[in-house]
């Protein structure tokens, strides 16, 4: 447990408001190392319930790395070491008592490239509930699959071909299938790592609309390359540069009057 007394009492160079009133995830002084190389330097930030927050910044700035720390996806990389504290509902997620399986069931993830399993659409969505034992009957499973596909806006397009392979869908549909797969296990938070970077503008628009919808029920952390996208969908925006969190704040403020020079340079297109 991270005690309440010191969570808002943290030294940080970050400009703007890193705290939120109703924090779901609290990160304090997070450092990430790949072997000798430090990829994330002293990042502290809160992520609130049911908010959509975007991480922006030039490529290689560490925003994806930081995102992957939040559900411990970095565990799969041998050389990766995480220091500092990240807590979900005030419980340290890097604590030995926490099982990464339960953590990832709570914090879903959607990846840059749509990655449906080479199985049927139905099996793709049903996979999570099946492994976690979330349904006790076929009807319940059907219901979860249907509901998740409805929530991801894919139901009308695929309801007649649930048994056809998920890899046969178009890119945008595949990505929505991946979102359906993530929400089928009823997570609290969904991490999205540049979910639209492999998609065309029309598919991107659909996903953005979907994210806006989902924001009502889930906390969503989205890493994006597109500032317009961040501006369109997120309530808060965090700007990363060279592994450091430079500035955080309401999206409107960040984009209209950034306080930091680097942020301003990036927003106005001088750092790419």
């Amino acid at each position: 447990m991270v005690s309440n007394s010191n969570i808002n009492n943290v030294k940080t160079k970050t400009i703007g408001e890193i705290f939120s009133k109703d924090p779901k995830i609290i990160c304090r002084n997070v450092d990430v190392f790949y072997g000798e190389k430090q990829a994330i330097k002293d990042v502290s930030i809160d992520i609130a319930s049911r908010e959509i927050i975007s991480f922006i910044g030039p490529s290689g700035c560490g925003k994806s790395t930081f995102l992957r720390c939040l559900n411990r996806m970095n565990d799969t990389i041998d050389t990766c070491k995480v220091k500092g504290s990240i807590s979900l509902d005030k419980e340290d997620i890097y604590d030995e008592k926490i099982d990464v399986v339960t953590l990832r069931a709570k914090i879903g993830m959607v990846f840059q490239k749509p990655n449906p399993f080479p199985k049927s659409i139905y099996e793709n969505v049903a996979y999570g509930p099946k492994i976690h034992g979330l349904s006790s009957s076929k009807e319940e499973l059907d219901f979860i699959v249907e509901n998740s596909l409805k929530d991801s806006g894919l139901w009308e397009e695929v309801k007649d071909r649930l048994q056809s392979p998920g890899t046969g869908l178009s890119g945008g549909q595949q990505q929505r299938l991946c979102i359906a797969r993530a929400i089928a296990v009823s997570p609290e938070i969904i991490l999205m790592d540049e979910p639209c970077s492999a998609l065309d503008p029309i598919a991107t628009a659909k996903i953005e609309e979907l994210i806006n919808q989902l924001g009502k029920n889930y906390s969503i952390v989205i890493v994006t390359h597109s500032m317009q996208q961040a501006a369109r969908i997120s309530q808060r925006t965090a700007y990363f540069h060279l592994g450091e969190l430079i500035e955080v704040g309401e999206t409107k403020k960040i984009f209209t009057m950034p306080k930091d020079k680097q942020t301003e340079a990036y927003i106005s297109g001088r750092i790419g």
């Binding site: 559900n71 799969t76 399986v101 953590l103 990832r104 990846f111 990655n115 399993f117 080479p118 492994i131």
Partner: peptide
């Protein structure tokens, strides 16, 4: 790797990723 990521991202154990994702593929 993206398929493994998908499995782990949903909270699968290694065993589940191996038997449900990797071996079939």
């Amino acid at each position: 790797q993206s398929l493994r990521d998908a499995g782990y991202g949903l909270g699968s154990t290694k065993n589940e990723v191996i038997t449900n994702v990797i071996i079939p593929a």
